[in-house]
Design a protein around this nucleic acid. Structure first.
Lengths: 221, 221
DNA sequence: TTACAGAATTATGTATACAAAATTACGCTT
DNA sequence: AAGCGTAATTTTGTATACATAATTCTGTAA
């Protein structure tokens, strides 16, 4: 029996949204750089119509900035906006913690412990990418456990502004130790199913990250 | 000297975004209703190209939902999403309060007191629209005073989901009394420049609103 | 009458064509 | 050579045309 071909029910413009997001996330399209429609059409092999729809969608999401009659540029994020975002993330993660602690399932708890262990391995191995991935998995799981889709979606919007920091951030030994200690506090609060405690730990965790980033930014101007 | 004509530097699609947002906010386009491109083109007097760009932008913002090959519908908000949104709003307003209290200016404080007084007048006059406007002004001022643009923007996104409740919500006497008492607590915390206190009041304020809405929704199913 | 198959119509998705604004190139003047 | 104004080119904005999927209509059979 021949395998069923994966019919493409997706439209060109939504596919373009996906691809452009990747290019921006990977840094292939740098913040501030201009998007020339013709060039992108040629490289993607599509006409301007779906490309422009994709550009408008990304602009509405805040990833691009439109200037009338002058096209789109990749949105830039100022240092102030980064620090602002950490404050907002603190409030969101705090709420996530409060909601997650009484609701987390055994499977989610196990996933969290596994991710934490994997994160420690990554640290020992000096695997920075792996560390970020595991860290991300931990926080994702907490938001999943919170069971509030609006919260998760809101977090995604804000998180996008700070995720690119991974390109420039170097984590010092003591900073790493702090982060791991805070993560272990999270596990304790989760096991105790203590929502307020987990919320407090997460708020503190985000605040210490914010201060780390503030120091990095101050150091390199 | 003839007055300078206001040149329209705005594009059709961004204008369409504005108009469509209005139609959705006013309830002229009901949640769940389908947007037929040709009909909208005829009524706006534009071609499909800019209209579709506007539709894609609104979909990216979450106001519309796209179904492949089947067009756009106005996003529906479930009761769960409304209650979720109040939880997120609580976290955001709490942070706004913490930041605003130490930073608020004299002018902003005066505006707050004026809006509060006007809100009381609206209550006495039974002016529900005025009440909502003043209430909105109070919370806007607090977010302005917080001085965190990311926070304000995040709040706007979440607020959109619950703003349409004003169409269905009837405020009982005791609910009104609670809201006013909480607003007066806010003014006290602001005068004391006590961030944590203002944050706590705002979190409590949003939580009591959430519970009110939960009761309304439960009552009318 | 109801159910269903297939044609006709309508709506959406994409490409192309045309208009207007912005950018670049070029030549002129100083 | 530098500055500036104008023409040529490029790029964006909008309209139209064509292709394909979805819906509606219609006629036939049970």
């Amino acid at each position: 029996m021949t395998e069923i071909e994966p019919i493409r029910r997706t439209s060109l413009h939504s596919e373009l949204v996906r691809r452009l997001k990747e290019l921006i996330a990977d840094g292939a399209l740098r913040p501030g750089s201009k998007l020339v429609e013709k060039d992108l059409c040629d490289s993607f092999g599509v006409s301007r119509t779906p490309l422009r729809e994709a550009i408008r969608a990304l602009a509405a999401e805040g990833l691009l900035v439109l200037t009338p009659n002058r096209g789109a540029t990749v949105a830039t994020v100022t240092e102030d906006q980064i620090l602002e975002s950490f404050l907002v993330m603190g409030a969101l993660e705090g709420l996530a913690g409060e909601l997650a602690a009484p609701r987390i399932t055994g499977a989610q708890m196990a996933a969290l412990r596994a991710a934490h262990a994997a994160m420690l391995d990554c640290r020992r191995a000096g695997d920075l990418d792996g560390y970020y991935a595991q860290n991300r998995a931990i926080h994702d799981t907490i938001f999943d456990a919170a069971g509030n889709g609006t919260l998760s979606e809101t977090r995604r919007m804000v998180h996008r502004r700070i995720v690119n920091l991974r390109f420039i951030a170097r984590i010092g030994d003591e900073e790493w130790a702090i982060a791991i200690a805070e993560h272990e506090e999270m596990l304790v609060a989760l096991e105790a199913r203590d929502g307020p405690a987990l919320g407090a730990v997460l708020r503190r965790h985000l605040e210490s990250k914010r201060q780390q980033v503030a120091r990095w930014l101050a150091r390199q101007g």
